[in-house]
């Protein structure tokens, strides 16, 4: 067995194990962490396919950003797993059917006439070929126009999100830093001349006795 084949099976086994644990783990935090492990194993598989950029992105984006967010959500939500788990077996037939369907579909795609492994054979890249460099070159030269358009689409997304969610409530108190800085002494401090010593006042008891 070649070394790459061996590595493939190792990563594949880890991936399958982690994916299985995602749905069987009792603790939702553990499930999320197993998903992270599954992503790492998937990144390893991509690395074997010489798609190192995708592998790095999977780790950076999904593990670094998406899953951390996921963990926060999982920790904040009060998920009653026992209740969710109680119907595990009643959902199993449906889930299994969908799973089998997906396996059949994948088999049809891979062995199919139109997009199968035979119709679209993979290429072996020469050693030292940099996927990342190639992608970067394409993005900033030949595909610079769609790349810029994608950035404009993201900008529209930001504007729309701000428009839909930012509310200026009139009853909230907030600080205006420029007003704070521009504040003068005269506006806020009032000098009152007071006599240095207090005049002696009569106590109520004395008044009452008179």
């Amino acid at each position: 067995m070649e070394f790459t084949t061996f590595t493939f099976y190792v990563f594949g086994a880890i991936l399958l194990f982690a994916a299985l644990r995602v749905i069987t783990a009792k603790n939702p935090v553990h499930a999320a962490l197993y998903l992270v492990l599954a992503f790492f194993a998937g990144a390893g598989l991509w690395m074997l396919l010489q798609a190192e950029f995708l592998a790095i992105m999977l780790v950076m984006v999904y593990v670094g950003a998406v899953m951390v967010l996921f963990l926060f959500v999982v920790m904040m939500l009060d998920i009653d797993l026992a209740r969710l788990r109680s119907r595990f077996w009643s959902y199993l037939p449906l889930g299994a059917t969908i799973g089998i369907l997906m396996v059949v579909m994948m088999a049809m795609v891979l062995g199919g006439r139109y997009f199968g492994v035979d119709a679209l054979p993979g290429q072996t890249l020469p050693p030292g070929h940099s996927n990342t460099k190639e992608l970067g070159r394409l993005l900033y030269t030949e595909y610079v126009y769609p790349f810029e358009l994608a950035s404009v689409i993201l900008l529209v997304g930001i504007i729309a999100a701000v428009m839909l969610t930012l509310r200026k409530r009139k009853d909230t108190k907030y600080l205006d830093p420029s007003r704070q800085v521009a504040r003068k002494r005269e506006e806020s401090v009032r000098l009152v001349s007071m006599p240095a010593e207090k005049e002696e006042t009569e106590t109520p008891t004395e008044r009452g006795s008179q």
């Binding site: 358009l149 994608a150 404009v152 689409i153 529209v156 729309a160 428009m163």
Partner: peptide, 13 residues
Amino acid sequence: YLGLELLSLSLYA
């Protein structure tokens, strides 16, 4: 496709 998405996203908002 990109132009269509740019147009559609703006219109949804």
